[in-house]
Simulated scan of single mutants.
Amino acid sequence: MIADSLLRASIWLAATPTPTPSGAPDDDLVTPGVAGFVVTFLVALAAVLLALDMVRRIRRVRYRAEINEKLDAEQAAEDDDRPDTDR
Rank of each mutant, 00 (worst) to 15 (best):
M1C: 02
A3S: 10
D4S: 10
D4P: 00
S5R: 13
S5E: 11
S5I: 12
L6N: 12
L7E: 09
A9K: 12
A9H: 01
I11T: 06
I11G: 00
I11Q: 10
A14P: 00
A15M: 07
T16C: 02
P25S: 05
P25K: 07
P25F: 03
D26T: 10
D26Y: 04
D27G: 04
L29H: 07
V30S: 08
T31E: 14
P32M: 05
A35V: 11
A35C: 01
A35E: 14
A35F: 05
G36E: 02
F37C: 00
F37A: 07
F37I: 08
V38I: 15
V39I: 14
F41Q: 14
L42D: 14
V43T: 15
V43Q: 15
V43E: 14
V43I: 15
A44I: 08
A44Q: 12
A46W: 05
A51D: 01
L52Y: 00
D53M: 06
M54D: 00
V55I: 09
R56D: 02
R57M: 08
I58C: 01
R59A: 12
R60Q: 13
R60G: 09
V61C: 01
R64S: 12
E66S: 09
K70M: 11
K70F: 08
K70I: 11
L71W: 06
L71C: 09
L71Y: 11
D72Y: 08
E74M: 13
Q75Y: 06
Q75H: 09
A76T: 09
A76S: 14
A76F: 02
E78C: 01
D79L: 13
D79A: 15
D80L: 14
D81G: 07
R82N: 06
T85I: 12
D86P: 00
D86W: 10
D86G: 08
